[in-house]
Nucleic acid binder design. Structure first.
Length: 409
DNA sequence: CGCAAGTCGTTAGTGGAGGT
DNA sequence: ACCTCCACTAACGACTTGCG
């Protein structure tokens, strides 16, 4: 089976005669190499369309995407708009050296106080955290403390009041999602608690938005089968009875994801975590989300994936396995491939993590014991699996009723 | 007092932008 | 064309609390 690759970020050049469209690219799915008329463009436009402006200033390259709603603006007007913004974009690139959003939060106007400041503590705090916490955690701490907490930077920890914190929260609420603000408050609280700040005692006076992060997930068995088949054969094409893969490593990563592992657990996997004699592999405590070592069996799909990957990496599996990672990618690449695959199949968007939901939901619906599923997912207790995937009372009741009907038959 | 709902700290996902 | 980084956002899972 062969899946045609669709590049989600495909931009083709716009070359409409007598129009200023230098450096403009149109985001669409087409085999065309360029757009030469408005008519062509209109055929490709959906509800929203994007025009990317590429420009170079002093050898520094910049890309800027403009998004338009087709209801509100015509393609031609959109091009004129982008053209009118070119000077401004180039000016920003020239002055800032980047088009990336500048970090927000205005400079603090608070006078520097005596002694060690908030900012001094942040530096040492982050250094200490780096020893134990993951990269993404450090990133979050850093953003919260270095960027969002700017108004506190020059204060001493002791002088911070709940009002100071509330001010930051209120200003964040105007332009950020509630989840982000709640996360920020928690992170700041953890930092202040570590330094025994007295403001912690007044923390419940803080007014915070409510965040509901429940997941509602449904997927038919038919679609599930389609996805699993497509993932296991991703980018494969058969030539004279032999299968070749355009993205063999991605296919192998997909195979591991389909065994219920998290993307990070897969990408951190090393050859010496694999035990081919016992047909097992381990997820070390440092990688597993629960920070406890997990061991899983290798089924034939996984064994094939390991063999395929070893061939790609020129690793001899018959020798002692070395301390080397199987996969070279970061999590973004498999993600994009996964979304391309879903798109090519005309299925709705899913996240890589949804593969776990897919497995669990399918298994629960087909009456596999929760305890087994829990181990498969690497949950530390059945309660977690139950809470997330099983409609416990309903399922148990129907199971009991089925059993009863069998008995009295 | 046993369970589930809520809390809290950590980790994963998203889409634009940068680089080769 | 392909891969990675960054700022922002969403979610997970162990721990805690509250309720019948």
């Amino acid at each position: 089976m062969y899946f045609k690759r669709i590049n989600m970020n495909k931009y083709i050049s716009i070359e409409i005669p007598n129009k200023d469209c230098k450096g403009m690219f149109f985001n669409c799915e087409t085999d065309l190499k360029k757009i030469t008329s408005v008519k062509e463009a209109n055929k490709l436009i959906g509800k929203v369309f994007k025009i990317q402006l590429r420009t170079r200033v002093n050898g520094k390259m910049g890309k800027k995407i403009f998004t338009f709603e087709s209801k509100k603006i015509t393609f031609l007007k959109a091009i004129e708009y982008v053209a009118s913004k070119r000077t401004e974009v180039r000016e920003i690139l020239k002055n800032n050296g980047t088009l990336r959003k500048q970090k927000k939060v205005e400079e603090s106007s608070v006078k520097i106080e005596e002694g060690e400041t908030f900012l001094d503590k942040v530096e040492t705090f982050l250094e200490t955290k780096e020893i134990s916490a993951r990269k993404s955690t450090i990133q979050n701490y850093s953003t919260a403390l270095n960027i969002h907490s700017k108004p506190l930077h020059n204060k001493s920890i002791e002088s911070i009041t709940i009002n100071d914190v509330q001010k930051i929260i209120n200003s964040m609420l105007t332009n950020r999602a509630a989840a982000t603000v709640v996360l920020y408050a928690r992170t700041l609280r953890a930092f202040l608690a570590k330094h025994k700040a007295s403001v912690i005692n007044e923390w419940e006076e803080l007014s915070l938005p409510h965040v509901d992060n429940k997941v509602d997930y449904t997927l038919s068995l038919k679609d599930t089968k389609k996805i699993i088949y497509a993932m296991r054969n991703y980018s494969g094409t058969e030539i004279e009875g032999e299968t070749f893969y355009q993205f063999e490593e991605i296919k192998n990563i997909f195979t591991f994801l389909l065994s219920g592992r998290r993307i990070n657990e897969v990408l951190q996997l090393k050859y010496n975590d694999i035990n081919l004699e016992e047909k097992t592999f381990k997820v070390p405590a440092s990688t597993a989300k629960g920070k406890k070592e997990l061991v899983f069996n290798l089924d034939n799909y996984l064994l094939d994936a390991i063999k395929s990957q070893a061939r790609l990496n020129r690793i001899d599996l018959s020798k002692n396995l070395i301390d080397k990672k199987l996969f070279k990618y970061t999590k973004e690449t498999p993600r994009v491939h996964f979304q391309n695959l879903l798109r090519a199949m005309g299925l709705p968007k899913l996240r890589l993590h949804d593969i776990r939901h897919m497995l669990a939901t399918t298994l629960v619906q087909n009456k596999v014991p929760i305890a087994d599923i829990s181990v498969l997912l690497g949950h530390s207790s059945i309660a977690i699996t139950e809470a997330r995937y099983a409609n416990k009372s309903k399922d148990q009741a129907s199971r009991a009723l089925d059993a009863f009907n069998d008995i009295i038959k």
